[in-house]
Every structure is written in C-alpha cells, then in structure tokens.
Simulated assay, not measured.
Amino acid sequence: MTELDAEDNKLLILARGAMGRTGGSGGAAIRDTDGRTYAAGEVSLKALRLTALQSAVAAAISSGAEGFEAAVVIGTRFSDRGVAAVREVSEEARIIFADAKGTVFDIVDGPVEGDPAARSGIPEGFDLDTESEVFE
C-alpha cells in the first residue's frame, strides 16, 4: 500500500465514510486550496446521477472553493467523470484512487502526459482529452 501524508489520509478516511453512509459503491473527498474538505457519495436519482467525485466537486464549488489541492476517489478508476471537473478547476491537483478497503492503487499528480493507456487504472481505449471511452 502506498503511504499517504496525514492530509491525504484524512481525505481517504472521509471518502470511505461517505461511501459507507450512502451505501453506494463509491465515495470521494476533496480538499480545496483553503484546506477545507468536502466528502460525498454517489447520487443515483432518476432525475440526477453523479459519481461520488462529481458530488464532492459540486459541494466544494457551491461552497465557494476556487481551487483544489487533492482528491481521493474510492471504488472507481481514472475514467470517473469527476476527474474532468477536478481538472477544469485545478489542473495540478493530486487525485488518489483507492479500493473500498482503502488500498491506494494509483496516484495522479497533475495532468497525465503520454499514452494514457500506459497508466495503471486507465482502461484501454480511454481518451484522456475528452475524458470518455472511445468506441470505433
């Protein structure tokens, strides 16, 4: 397991807690540039569907966050649609991906350079420029 610093470990705990409270398969937490943290689970309503990371970003932005330092995502991979939202606000933010037990399987510091398929956790056929799957 990759060791996280105390602040990133706090995000991991908050993300796991959000996942547990909502009973979903994912959770996320994000830290803004002022040090405030926001945690959220997935939203699965008929009228609204958000990944946990999208929910955490929405909570942060609606609370006045102007930038992000780091985020932790539980239960999904780099293809989480919330990654694009984090990158739109803060291109250099660290994004940590972990499983439901809290084991970190990937850390992305800043924009991803080169072949995205070469990164662990990025599915083959993933188009990093459009943050979507490419179907031919």
Rank of each mutant, 00 (worst) to 15 (best):
K101W: 12
S132Y: 05
D80A: 15
E133D: 14
G24Q: 01
E3D: 11
E3P: 08
S90W: 11
I30R: 00
E91K: 09
I61L: 15
Q54F: 06
G125N: 12
G82E: 01
E69K: 14
L53T: 02
E42Y: 01
V43N: 03
M1G: 15
T130A: 09
T103R: 15
P123Q: 10
R21T: 05
V86Q: 01
E42R: 08
D32M: 09
V86T: 03
S44I: 14
G64M: 15
F126V: 05
E113I: 10
A117H: 06
F126D: 05
E69P: 05
V112T: 10
A100C: 05
V89A: 08
E124Q: 14
Q54A: 11
P116I: 07
P111V: 07
A39K: 03
G41C: 04
A98L: 05
I96T: 04
K10M: 11
E66A: 09
T103A: 14
M19L: 08
A59L: 12
N9G: 09
G24S: 07
V57R: 08
R119K: 15
T103F: 10
G64H: 12
E136P: 10
A85S: 15
V134P: 00
L128G: 04
K46D: 15
I96R: 01
A118N: 08
E113N: 14
Y38L: 09
E3R: 12
L12Q: 02
V89P: 02
A84G: 07
E136N: 11
S90M: 13
D127C: 10
A118M: 09
L50S: 07
K101C: 10
A15Q: 03
G125E: 10
F78T: 03
A84V: 06
V112R: 13
V57T: 13
E92Q: 15
R49K: 15
G41A: 07
E66C: 08
A47P: 02
L11E: 03
K101M: 14
A29E: 04
K46A: 14
R49G: 14
A118W: 04
A118C: 06
R16L: 15
A93S: 13
E88A: 11
V73G: 00
A15V: 03
F78M: 00
A56F: 02
A29W: 00
T51I: 02
I13A: 10
G24N: 03
G64C: 10
A98K: 01
L53Q: 00
S63L: 09
V89Q: 07
D8Q: 13
R16M: 13
I95S: 01
L50M: 13
A117I: 04
E88V: 05
G26A: 13
I122R: 01
A98V: 05
V86I: 12
A39P: 03
S25D: 00
G75Q: 04
K101E: 15
M19I: 00
E91G: 05
L4C: 11
F78E: 00
A47Y: 10
G27Y: 03
A93T: 07
S120M: 11
G110V: 06
G64D: 12
D129H: 04
I61M: 14
A59R: 06
G121E: 07
S25I: 02
L14P: 01
I96H: 03
G20Q: 11
F105P: 05
R77A: 04
